[in-house]
Simulated assay, not measured.
Amino acid sequence: MVDLAAYAGLFFAAFIAATIFPMQSEAVLVGLILSDRYALAALVLTASVGNTLGSVVNWLMGLGVERFRDRRWFPVKPDKLEKAKTWYRKYGKWSLLLSWLPIGGDAITVVAGVLKEPLPTFLVLVFIGKTLRYGVVAAVTLGVIG
């Protein structure tokens, strides 16, 4: 019998981890892999889909960021936002393959929204990056690499 609660928990952890909230979805994935009770491909897919959809939250925030950028409480200084936009324009949509990075990955997905990267392109590239990351975590956990 499939334990849907475990997959739901992994999905939720991966979803939250992709947003601005702190969460360690890799630890959840590793724990489930080591339990040897779940299909590896299903775990990697669940984490990848959850993390990709969490990144959509960042993309949506980016779409609305311009209307708040002049507010006193806005967390990003105008020069930093311009620098991020310049960086994204330089490297383009392919930088979304790095959205899995623990530092800067979330910012890339927000800036993609600010610059109105089309959602289908965003989804494909972010999903590829996230899946590669979780695939590497799974391979390291199983001792296939590392």
Rank of each mutant, 00 (worst) to 15 (best):
T19S: 07
T19G: 03
T19H: 07
T19L: 06
I20E: 10
I20W: 14
I20Y: 10
F21W: 03
F21R: 06
F21P: 10
M23N: 04
Q24C: 15
Q24R: 15
S25A: 11
E26F: 00
E26P: 00
A27T: 12
A27W: 01
A27F: 07
A27K: 05
V28D: 04
L29G: 05
L29C: 09
L29I: 04
L29V: 07
L29P: 09
V30R: 02
V30Y: 01
G31P: 04
L32V: 15
L32E: 07
L32I: 14
L32Q: 06
I33W: 08
I33P: 08
I33E: 02
I33D: 01
I33S: 02
I33Q: 02
I33L: 08
I33T: 01
L34K: 15
S35N: 06
S35G: 06
S35W: 07
D36M: 12
D36H: 14
R37F: 12
R37L: 10
R37W: 14
R37Q: 15
R37T: 09
R37I: 14
A39K: 13
A39Q: 11
A39D: 15
A39F: 12
A39I: 11
L40C: 08
A41W: 15
A41H: 14
A41S: 12
A41V: 15
A42L: 10
A42Y: 12
A42T: 07
A42G: 05
A42V: 12
V44D: 07
V44H: 03
V44A: 04
L45T: 11
L45I: 09
L45K: 02
T46Q: 11
T46W: 13
T46N: 08
T46K: 06
A47E: 13
S48K: 01
V49A: 11
V49T: 08
G50W: 04
G50F: 02
N51H: 06
L53M: 02
L53H: 03
L53K: 03
L53V: 03
G54P: 00
G54C: 00
G54A: 06
S55Y: 04
S55E: 02
S55V: 07
V56E: 01
V56G: 02
V56M: 05
V57N: 05
W59Y: 02
W59I: 00
W59N: 01
W59F: 00
G62A: 10
L63G: 11
L63V: 09
G64A: 11
V65D: 04
V65S: 08
V65F: 11
V65I: 13
V65C: 08
E66G: 13
F68I: 08
F68E: 11
R69S: 12
R69T: 12
R69F: 12
R69C: 10
D70L: 03
R72D: 14
W73T: 07
W73L: 09
F74T: 11
F74S: 10
P75F: 06
P75H: 05
V76W: 05
V76S: 06
V76Y: 10
K77G: 13
P78R: 03
P78Y: 03
P78M: 04
D79M: 15
D79P: 12
D79V: 15
K80D: 14
K80L: 10
